[in-house]
Amino acid sequence: MKKIFSILFVTLLLFSCQPDEIPPIGEATDYIPMLTGTWKLNKFEQIDADAESKSFPAFATVKDLTNVFPGHPYTDFSITFNPDGTFTADPGSSYMQMLTSGDWEVDDTEFPSAIILSSGSETQTIALNSLADVILGKVEFKEERKQADTGKIKIKYIYSLSKTSEL
């Protein structure tokens, strides 16, 4: 009797050690419909990459440029990504430099890291800093200035936008 219990116990242990089945992975996220719509800029920051690397205090590392030019707030800027692949951008009174209309696409539909704007022969690539909250209607664009001879990043600009309307 004792032997049977022992065998049953060992068998139970062995079955307990079977690997769990890996659950099926969901379909790849389609970011295009999430990006489609009108986005308004709500924060514009400039980062001194050298100061950041040296862990300088915040006032010498990051500057909030959102309202730095009186009468020309960057919050005036908005951009609309249409479902048909066209876009329109409105700088308002801000000094934002971006193509104002044309076509848009992402560099990689499955894992987009940049939005490419084009108008005639002109193209502008907007790096995506974060898509983590795109489902919540928030997205961050990133622009980097690199030293011409070394390619080292010297200045970063982070544009935080919120979706104001779906299309």
Partner: peptide, 17 residues
């Protein structure tokens, strides 16, 4: 330490285009 040194005049970023 790589410390920030306050100065009479400075720009932000420290070097710009």
């Amino acid at each position: 330490p790589l410390e920030f040194e306050p100065s009479y005049f400075r720009t932000f970023p420290a070097k710009v285009s």
